[in-house]
């Protein structure tokens, strides 16, 4: 129980990410079917993304989108440009704007407490990684189809046997 409280509960996400990564790695190494290997690769990839996103979590924080008002958008712009030199004047509004009180919710950069919002940087990095991941999965599937066309099989042992017999394209 001591061990659980000290080193499992606070790191639960990290433990699970290691477990998922082991499952994916094991599948990539030992599975015989190429599609199964790709499923293992997907799991491996999501485990890494899970790790990155877990890093950016802050207890008691909200999603990284600020509160704002549509109608004030342009009026405020002129305001901000006029004052772009002295943001420090508004530092006193610090406390007031923290709780999303609408009137002054966003008026100066210093009115925003970083601890209230989840860390956006891992989100950005992982968002592109997911989309790139699906396009590389597409390339991998295309290669699998092309292997199937040449060897008539997606099982690793059958493909290796055919290669030993005499190269690709023997019989489709």
């Amino acid at each position: 129980m001591e061990f659980l409280n000290a080193s499992v509960i606070p790191y639960f996400n990290y433990w699970i990410y290691v477990v998922l990564m082991m499952i994916g790695l094991h599948a990539m190494i030992t599975k015989n079917n190429l599609i199964k290997k790709l499923i293992g690769m997907s799991i491996f990839q999501t485990a890494i993304i899970l790790f990155y996103v877990s890093i950016g979590v802050k207890t008691g924080s909200t999603i990284p989108i600020l509160e704002h008002h549509h109608d004030e958008g342009h009026a405020e712009t002129a305001h901000a440009v006029a004052e772009s030199g002295d943001h420090h004047a508004e530092e006193t509004d610090h406390e007031k704007s923290d709780h999303g009180n609408n009137e002054h919710a966003i008026e100066a950069d210093h009115g925003i407490d970083p601890d209230h919002f989840a860390n956006p940087l891992p989100h950005v990095l992982m968002l592109t990684a997911i989309v790139v991941g699906v396009s590389t999965l597409g390339v991998a599937l295309a290669i699998s189809q092309s292997i199937y066309k040449d060897f008539g099989s997606l099982e690793e042992n059958e493909i290796l046997a055919k290669i030993k017999q005499g190269g690709p394209g023997v019989d489709v």
Binding site: P64, I65, L66, E67, H68, G73, E76, T77, A80, S84, H87, I106, A108, D109, H110, I112, P114, F117, N119, P120
Partner: peptide
């Protein structure tokens, strides 16, 4: 987090 809105006026960080 703190400067995005003043820099760019985009609420989604």
């Amino acid at each position: 987090i703190t400067d995005t809105y003043t820099d760019t006026k985009v609420p989604n960080i």
